[in-house]
Computed example of a mutant assay.
Amino acid sequence: MPNEPNRFGWIVEVDVNDPNSVPKKRTAMGRFKHEGAESIVAKDGRVVFYLGDDERFDYVYKFVTSGTFNPNDRAANMNLLDSGTLYVAKFDAGGALEWLPLVFDQGPLTAANGFDSQADVLIETRRAADLLGATKMDRPEDVQPNGVNGKVYVMLTNNTRRKDDQVDAANPRAKNAFGHIIEIAEADGDFAATKGTWEVLLKCGDPSVAAVGASFSTDTTRNGWFGMPDNCAVDAAGRLWVSTDGNNPKDTGRTDGLWAVDTEGGARATSKLFFRVPVGAEMCGPLFTPDDRTAFVAAQHPGDGGTDWAPFGRPSYYEDLSTRWPDFKDDMPVRPAVVVITKKDGGVIGS
């Protein structure tokens, strides 16, 4: 069927509090390779969702609802995502940021360019962003607003296909194997703003290798650096936590995991290792409880590969696994799992 691909690439909302509810495709948020949708309430009560398109040379988006959030009426919030404006980011070389609206019949998004309605714009979100001249990024995955310091953090995982003549200020390295993190400051601290500023918080990779061009602080230890930022979270204190996908013992000398990154003051761009996943796995979905006393992390596809880990050195199959995490029993397969982390004294994580 010619329209079969159009069924995929949407954000789907699930009401986890109602087992009888029907999941809804939130088409107003655009069709692309969504890594997630991280939300925050703006100053005027509208809800802002930040979205990354997990593909090389694709874009950073945000969606701003038309209606406002009502903290005292859950039912009134159930259809907030039916209506709003989807924007795509343009990162200026001088550090300015502009959010360009993806709205039918505005600018080039007209019938002359093959768009007959807003539905066409949303189905062909990437092409619409191309026409608007948005900035082509190095695989934007998670995009996380920070309610403590008012900033927004964009995880750019990597892009080894970027050539020397394709380098720009927001994507400063050709053959970007290790990725980087951009920090956005929305105008007047308003997450619904259409303008702002930006800067590179971190260029990832091994800072001891000059050719890599990493930019961690000098206080970052040998175990503190990371590459391939993927998902992230912000704790109640405003600290950024970054999970990774793509590190492996063969190429980087480490597995993936979760790192704590300071974003303020003299410790800015200092990273500390917090948790490592088993060999072959990637870390995803970090989340902290509001009191910061419990952290949730997910280990995907542990035991994958096998040849990347010298002590094993061969493909990993069900009959011959590089690890049997998390049970470590001969009669149990390796399994992805969600891990719950607490301090032994029950205190605040990261304190």
Rank of each mutant, 00 (worst) to 15 (best):
A174M: 11
F104Y: 15
M29R: 02
P302W: 10
M29P: 00
T68S: 14
G347P: 03
A310M: 05
L109N: 07
V14P: 00
T244L: 07
L97D: 03
D251I: 00
G346F: 15
D291N: 05
Y61L: 01
N231E: 09
D164V: 08
T194C: 10
R268I: 01
V277C: 11
G253P: 04
V279S: 04
Y87M: 05
E55Q: 12
W198V: 01
V152F: 04
N3H: 15
A93C: 07
N72H: 11
G238Y: 10
A89P: 01
T342G: 05
K151W: 04
A96P: 03
R268W: 02
W99Y: 12
E264V: 12
V334A: 14
A237C: 03
E199N: 12
G213Y: 04
K33A: 06
P207N: 10
L258G: 06
F91Y: 05
A193K: 14
N72D: 15
P315I: 06
G306H: 07
M78W: 06
Y50L: 00
P336A: 14
R7L: 13
F288S: 00
E124I: 05
D206G: 03
R268F: 01
P249G: 05
D165Q: 08
H301D: 07
D120Y: 09
R74I: 07
V167A: 07
F91P: 00
E55S: 12
D188Q: 12
I40K: 06
G305H: 12
T135Y: 02
T323M: 08
D262R: 10
H301Y: 13
F296R: 01
V14E: 04
D142I: 02
A185Q: 15
E38F: 13
G350M: 04
R127D: 08
D120P: 02
F274G: 09
S322A: 14
S316Q: 01
K24P: 00
M332T: 11
G30N: 10
F69Q: 03
D116T: 15
G189W: 10
R268M: 02
F312E: 06
R162A: 06
F49S: 01
L287D: 11
A214M: 02
N20D: 11
V348E: 14
V22M: 00
G36I: 00
L287H: 11
S215H: 12
F91G: 01
G114M: 07
S208Y: 14
S83G: 06
R161G: 13
P290K: 01
Y61T: 00
A177G: 06
K136P: 02
S21A: 09
W10L: 00
F91K: 01
K343I: 05
N159H: 01
P19I: 13
